[in-house]
């Protein structure tokens, strides 16, 4: 079934391939608690107790990691869909020519 045109499916293909690679990697970096991503875990309140701080940070890191992986999974689905659309489009254009 054809839903997207050739250009849109190509864009989806590139975007989702990029998304899968980057988001899986970012998930890994969150999972190993990369300091560079500390600004992006949404640690707002100031905690005085170091133990509390660490446990809070850890949950946030894991949460972000899973969020990234969820997004990556959706991109895998988009990738499959776009690839299928791309294939359909290339088939129909071949039969035309």
């Amino acid at each position: 079934m054809k839903v997207c045109g050739p250009t849109l499916s190509l864009c989806g293909l590139i975007l989702s391939a990029w998304g899968v690679v980057q988001l899986v990697l970012m998930g890994v970096f969150y999972y190993i608690k990369s300091v560079a991503l500390f600004e992006d875990i949404g640690m707002e309140e100031k905690l005085d107790d170091p133990a509390e701080f660490y446990s809070k940070a850890e949950t946030l890191y894991t949460q972000s990691a899973f969020n990234c992986w969820i997004a990556a999974c959706i991109y895998v689905l988009l990738l499959i869909f776009s690839a299928h659309q791309f294939y359909v489009n290339s088939q129909s254009s071949h039969s035309h020519a």
Partner: peptide, 26 residues
Amino acid sequence: VLGNAMKMQGWAGGIAVWIIFAFWAV
């Protein structure tokens, strides 16, 4: 752009990351 999505708490964050990543990529 991307940082805002990353900060999102809870599982809806995954969907937000998915949408906002596309925006950020463009």
